[in-house]
Simulated scan of single mutants.
Amino acid sequence: MKTYETVAQLQPLLREVVGTSDWIVVDQQRINTFADATGDFQWIHVDPERAAAGPFGAPIAHGFLTLSMLPVFSQSAFAIRQIKLGVNYGLNKVRFLKPVPVNSRLRAHFKLISFDSLDNNGTQIIYEMTVEMEGADKPVCVAESILRVFD
């Protein structure tokens, strides 16, 4: 994990990766829990027998499950010590480029795209989050995450 004392330390790192997360396994329990939370019980996600005979050969994670893992990815990728509050402000340009089969290992890279000052001692930061799957030839998800932090 990379650690930054202040948010200002990120400013000179535009277009650079400011952190890479630990690997996280996307197992069937995580997929089922996400299905329970969202009501998305499509068989390609939650029915291992049927999914094994389906187009992907196994259950796959919901795309929005992969996206919803942004907080857990960022927690192990980097930390900014001297902030009082950070809030999710939204997303830009979300793409799901490859299915994520059950028991895949994922990690995310956070590249700093923009850094803008706000009122009230705030900063708006946009990261390009690229989620990779171990052994895959291309990312499974790429999204721009907008974060507002206040110190």
Rank of each mutant, 00 (worst) to 15 (best):
M1H: 13
M1G: 14
K2Y: 05
T3S: 15
T3I: 14
L10H: 06
L13A: 07
G19W: 01
S21K: 02
D22H: 09
V26W: 08
V26P: 06
Q29Y: 04
I31V: 13
I31G: 02
I31Y: 06
N32W: 03
N32M: 09
T33M: 14
A35H: 04
D36R: 07
A37W: 05
A37T: 13
A37K: 06
T38H: 07
D40F: 01
Q42V: 02
W43I: 01
D47K: 03
P48D: 11
E49A: 13
A51H: 04
A52Q: 14
A53M: 15
A53E: 15
P59N: 12
I60A: 03
H62Q: 12
G63A: 05
F64R: 05
F64N: 08
L65G: 02
T66Q: 02
M69P: 00
M69I: 07
P71W: 12
S74A: 15
S74F: 05
Q75C: 05
A79Y: 04
I80R: 01
I83F: 06
K84P: 04
L85N: 08
G86V: 15
V87A: 12
N88S: 09
Y89S: 06
Y89N: 05
Y89F: 13
G90C: 07
G90R: 02
L91E: 04
K93M: 06
V94I: 13
L97K: 13
K98W: 11
P99K: 11
P101A: 03
V102T: 11
N103V: 00
S104D: 00
S104C: 03
L106Q: 06
R107V: 00
A108K: 00
A108S: 13
H109Q: 14
K111L: 04
L112H: 09
L112Q: 04
S114F: 10
S114W: 10
F115R: 09
L118P: 00
L118G: 02
D119V: 14
G122V: 09
I125P: 04
I125M: 14
I126Y: 03
I126R: 14
M129V: 13
T130S: 02
V131N: 02
E132L: 06
E134R: 11
G135K: 06
G135I: 01
K138V: 05
K138H: 13
K138T: 07
V140H: 01
C141Y: 01
V142N: 00
S145E: 07
S145D: 11
S145N: 10
I146H: 09
V149T: 11
V149D: 07
V149Q: 11
